[in-house]
Design a protein around this nucleic acid. Sequence first.
DNA 1: ATTTTTGTTAACGTAAGGTTAAAACAGAAG
DNA 2: CTTCTGTTTTAACCTTACGTTAACAAAAAT
Lengths: 234, 234
Amino acid sequence: MEEHKKRILLVEDDPNFGTVLKDYLMMNDYEVTHAKNGMEGFEKFKKDDFDLCILDVMMPYKDGFTLAKEIREKNTDVPIIFLTAKTMKEDVLKGYKVGADDYLNKPFDSEVLLMKIKAIIQRKATETISDSKQFEFKIGRFDLNSKLRFLKFDGGEPVKLSPKENELLRLLALHENDLMPRELALTKIWRDDNYFTSRSMDVYIAKLRKYLKLDEKVEILNIHGEGFRLVINS
Amino acid sequence: MEEHKKRILLVEDDPNFGTVLKDYLMMNDYEVTHAKNGMEGFEKFKKDDFDLCILDVMMPYKDGFTLAKEIREKNTDVPIIFLTAKTMKEDVLKGYKVGADDYLNKPFDSEVLLMKIKAIIQRKATETISDSKQFEFKIGRFDLNSKLRFLKFDGGEPVKLSPKENELLRLLALHENDLMPRELALTKIWRDDNYFTSRSMDVYIAKLRKYLKLDEKVEILNIHGEGFRLVINS
DNA sequence: ATTTTTGTTAACGTAAGGTTAAAACAGAAG
DNA sequence: CTTCTGTTTTAACCTTACGTTAACAAAAAT
C-alpha cells in the first residue's frame, strides 16, 4: 500500500512567515508548493494536483477569496483552509461562503494546524473514494462527456451542455438508479441551499428531461422531498 | 421545504449560557435538545437521531470527551463540535483525537458558530449513505426499498410510498412478527405523541393495510393499547 | 352500557415539484 | 462603453403529493 506524500499548496505573501510555515510542514512530511501571491498561486494550482490549499486572505493583487473562487471553478472538491488575521470575523464568514473547510487565526499554534490538516485530508480521503474522477458516462443511448460538456445521442451530433446542466447530469449519472439527494446537488453545485437555488435546480431538471426525451427508456424520477433518480429502464 | 429541521443535541451545564444558546439556535431554524450534563446528554442521544452534537468540555460527572467517546461507540458518523472554556490547546488536540469535527473557544461569535454548523452539516450530507442493507426489506411477496421509498409486489411495478408510509412500514418491518409499540412510531416518526398524531398514525396503518392486501399472508395486527404487529403467515 | 381505542374514508390546506417565460448577469466582441 | 450571446436566476402559474383533521363505524375494554 504505497502512499504518496500529501501535496499542499501554500499561498502566502509574507516571505518570512511563508518560508517558516513551508519548512515546518515539510518537516512533517508534506510536500509543499509555496506561491507568493494569488496570481502565482493560481498558476501553480492549475499545473498540479493538490490535496489541500492553504490561502492567506490578505494578499496584494489577488486576495485569498478571489483565488479560492477561481480554484473552486476548476475543482469543487479540494479542501481549502484560510489564514486570517485574528479579529476579522467578516473574513471568516466570507470564507465559509466560498466553500472553505476551515480557517485559522494568525498567529496560530502550529500543532493545531497540523491536526486540522490531518483531519481534513483524512475526511476528504474517505469521501473521494465514492465520487472518483469520472467524466464519461453511458446513459441509455446517450453518451455524456462531462469534461467537454456535451451529450451525444446514438453517436450522432453532440449537444453542448451549459456548466450547470453538465454538473447536474453528471451527479445524477454518478448515482444512476439511485437517489441523488437534492441537498447534495445544491451544496455541491450551487454551494447554497435555499428556496431559490432549489427552484433553479428544478428548472435544470426540466431542461435535462427535455434532452433525455429522445430515449424513452431514460427518465429522471422525483422522490418527493428527497431528490431525484436517474433510471434506465431495460 | 426541508423535509425535517436539522436536530442538534446541545450538552451544556451552565444553565444561562445553555438556554441562551439553545434559543439562538432555535431562532435559526434548528431543533434543539438541551441536556444539562453528560449523563443526561447520553440518554437523550440514545433516544433520538441527531444531525449534530455540541458538547461542552468542562462538565461535572462526565466531561465532554468521555461523552464524545460514548457517542462515537454508538454512532461513528454524527458530527461533534466541542466548546472549550479557554484557548486550551490540550483540549483542542484531545478533541480531534476523539473525532471532533470542530471546536470553538468560549466566548465565541454566534454567527461563526452558525456558519460552522451549516458547513459541517452540509459536509455530512455530501457523504453518500450506501448501506443498502438497512433500507431493503422482504415482506412476504413484497420488496420494500426504504431509501427509494417504493414497494414492489412479486418484482412487478413499484408503488411509490410517501415519507410517512415508508417510515412506518420500515419500522414495522424492523420489528417483523414482533410488537412495534405505538409510542415508538409516534416518537420516532411523528416526534410527538398526542391524540392527533396518534390518529394520523392510524390513518397510515389503514393505508399500509390496503397496499399489503395483495399478499393475503401479510397482515398488520393491532395489539390494543400497545401497538401493531406486522406478521407474515406461512 | 358506556367509554376508549381503533378502522376507514374523505376533504382540506399546504408544500413541493413541473414548466415556461422573462429578467438579470457575465463574458466576449465590436 | 455598448452590444451581443449564452447562461443562470427569478417569477408566475399550475399540478401533484402529502399530512392532518373530521366524521362516523366497529371493536375492545371497563
